[in-house]
Design a binder for these strands. Sequence first.
DNA 1: TAGCTAACGTACTGGTTCGTACATTAGTGA
DNA 2: TCACTAATGTACGAACCAGTACGTTAGCTA
Lengths: 221, 221
Amino acid sequence: MTSVEEPARPGERIRDAARTRAEILDVATQEFARAGYDGARVDEIAARTRTTKRMIYYYFGGKEQLFTAVLERAYGVIREAEQQLDVDHLDPVAAIRRLAELTFDHHEQHPDFIRLVSIENIHEAHHIAASEKLGKIGSPALDVIRRILASGQESGLFTADVDAVDLHAMISSFCFFRVSNRHTFGALFGRDLLDRAQRAHYRAMLGDMVIAYLTAERTAD
Amino acid sequence: MTSVEEPARPGERIRDAARTRAEILDVATQEFARAGYDGARVDEIAARTRTTKRMIYYYFGGKEQLFTAVLERAYGVIREAEQQLDVDHLDPVAAIRRLAELTFDHHEQHPDFIRLVSIENIHEAHHIAASEKLGKIGSPALDVIRRILASGQESGLFTADVDAVDLHAMISSFCFFRVSNRHTFGALFGRDLLDRAQRAHYRAMLGDMVIAYLTAERTAD
DNA sequence: TAGCTAACGTACTGGTTCGTACATTAGTGA
DNA sequence: TCACTAATGTACGAACCAGTACGTTAGCTA
């Protein structure tokens, strides 16, 4: 999530709007993810930047809009990752497993994103609603799921009654929970869901779960 | 979650420590769930109570301890529900489905609980760690899962390699996500996971998923 | 090179918010 | 019934914090 890491060489150009903006976004992402929307401090974000609080208001308008901008960029990152996904050459079972693993990996590698989404849910997605970028554009993962499901159902490999959005919710819930609820789950059950030694186990468990669901014969509905 | 609803009859005993304490807890639960830990206002909690802010500090010591007390009671409620569960007379498949449905129902009926847990995760479970009540005591649901799994695996109905805590995580993740991520999911995919018309569908989906996973033959691990 | 504007910094304010010092009263036990 | 303590209320303070008024400068353009 860090797109700015220039070491502030002396003599370098002092004024750089793009860099300043990006640096604010980077630090704001960390601060909002760390402390939540209300817990985050605009002064703290400014202090960890090479610029001042004034610039936050100059570029983003206010704390709310800054958080919205942070969300927009965070969602953009996962959309890009999903767009990279190419599973057209795989059979439906392998393709779904691959897609699930991509979600698994991305969520694990971006805990800040998970925290931001949790925070946004506490605020009932008001910032997403206020954003023009978010909301309109769908998820590339959904398109992929639709294609795989159609192919798998056509060939008779998959049960017919599964909806793409539902399957996306199923995969996301497992991957999301593992990161979002890591701390309470660990405190209550004494197991760290992000333990490196268990990573492969949970990754396989997700794939097994999804494939089992897709290939099982239903009792009733 | 409301344990106090006395209509403040005139002439009633004015001083009632237990009632005052409980009323503060009720209102605090709502306020913390509504706005998050940092978003919640102690003054607002006091204002919605028949007592004053002074009493919050008198009974709980401070905002942190109040939040911890709120968490303790919220977790107590779900533990009680789990203890009511009696599935010993059911076959393993029906028993697991029943357990999953209980979790599904409880999460749906207690969105405030879900929000509190999300908030506590943002704060890395520090309040659970600070609590003496929480942490020590395990979950009744886990004991039930252990018994059902053992029975199902012994009879050969279930795959052998499933762990109770893992299965609990799987069930919880689906039920939790449906409530916790309702708003962002709805905003991004245009589907309300808590839509009443879809309730039976998702409830069956959860059971199908868990049973499919438990009864499927594994490819590899 | 003069001037213009985007980019930036300083210093402050007004409102908010957690927490408490101090005063008071209800109810209980001796 | 008298005193003592648990329970309660009032009023206030000190720190914090989002946002801004005002002033300055870098660097581009004509």
